[in-house]
């Protein structure tokens, strides 16, 4: 047994244990911390599976932004203390356990019954990389071969932000999301929020740019940009923009709209919906990704900022 195998077994065991602990532990705060660590370890598993693109996304969303979202939820739950009020009855618990066991058994069965070798389109995706001029086959699949899925995913992000905004009370509609954060302007958090964003913005753009040929892309880069934006908001250096602002709405729809326009142009003048002319494939994909990174950064940031709760006037 090689040392890599031992490492993988230990990693899988720790992830399993951490997952169980996250479910079993009583306090919501501890469960959140467990979930963040779980996300980072799952990212390591993706690295071991040579899926670095997925690992970056998992670390950014599962470990990073998802963790922040859950921390906010845990803080609100602690204030409201609604968890202790209603404990589910025995029947509900038993049926939930039975349902979970059935789902696990079905998933395990599906994995164990996979034909060997498992069906895959990966060789076809790699063989057709010439069609786009990009050498990262994950980006090829996301932006060209299965571009429709990616476009719809961005529409889902848009729907998510509409869902969050629809929680706003009428009086705050059009106002600024989330509370106004106050921090010591000479404190260490404000210092970090001044020092880190220039570095983070460069890294975010680099991740987008390198996504053409190496692991990376608009989603991972957008998540980094969003976290830099949130850092300045949490440190009190910037405020969230009122959701009624036209430029904000424009950024939120820019990615899916450009995607849709390119797709329709392909339908009218090319072979099919979302078919790129081969000579223009790379610039078109890059253009869509640039629009998408702005949309993703703004959407993720606003999703974490929450529903509008203050009027637009300061």
């Amino acid at each position: 047994m090689s040392i890599a195998t031992v490492f993988e077994i230990v990693l899988a065991a720790v992830v399993l244990g951490l997952g169980i602990w996250t479910i079993v532990v009583r306090e919501t705060f501890s469960a959140t911390v467990g979930f963040v660590a779980y996300g980072l370890l799952v990212a390591l598993i993706w690295v071991r599976l040579d899926a670095v693109d997925v690992a970056l996304t998992e670390a950014a969303i599962g470990g990073g932004l998802g963790g922040v979202l859950l921390l906010g939820a845990a803080a609100r739950l602690r204030d409201a203390d609604v968890m202790a009020a209603e404990t589910p009855g025995k029947v509900v618990r038993a049926s939930a356990a039975a349902l979970s066991v059935l789902t696990t058994a079905a998933l395990a069965g599906a994995v164990l019954l996979l034909p060997d070798p498992a069906p895959t389109l990966a060789p076809a995706a790699v063989a057709n990389a010439w069609a786009t001029g990009l050498s990262n086959s994950v980006t090829n699949v996301l932006m060209a071969f299965r571009a429709m899925d990616t476009m719809l995913e961005k529409v889902v992000l848009l729907l998510a932000i509409i869902g969050v905004w629809s929680l706003a009370p009428d009086s705050a509609w059009g106002g600024r999301p989330g509370p106004r954060h106050q921090a010591d302007p000479d404190g260490v958090l404000a210092f970090l929020a001044r020092l880190l964003p220039p570095v983070g913005i460069v890294v975010g753009i680099y991740i987008l740019w390198t996504g053409a040929d190496h692991p990376g892309g608009a989603f991972q880069g957008g998540a980094i940009l969003a976290s830099m934006w949130l850092l300045t908001i949490i440190a009190g250096l910037a405020d969230t923009p009122p959701v009624s602002r036209r430029w904000l709405r424009f950024i939120l729809v820019a990615g899916p709209c450009l995607f849709l326009v390119v797709g329709l142009v392909g339908l009218l003048f090319g072979a099919a919906f979302l078919s790129y002319p081969p000579a223009l494939a790379k610039p078109l994909i890059l253009g869509i990704e640039v629009a998408m990174i702005l949309t993703i950064a703004a959407t993720l940031g606003l999703l974490l900022a929450g529903a509008p709760e203050r009027s637009a006037k300061p």
């Binding site: 260490v188 970090l192 570095v199």
Partner: peptide, 16 residues
């Protein structure tokens, strides 16, 4: 360097 920056900042915040 980024790990140092993040670690130092977070320990300051937790200590405070």
């Amino acid at each position: 360097l980024l790990g140092l920056l993040a670690g130092a900042t977070v320990s300051q915040l937790i200590a405070r």
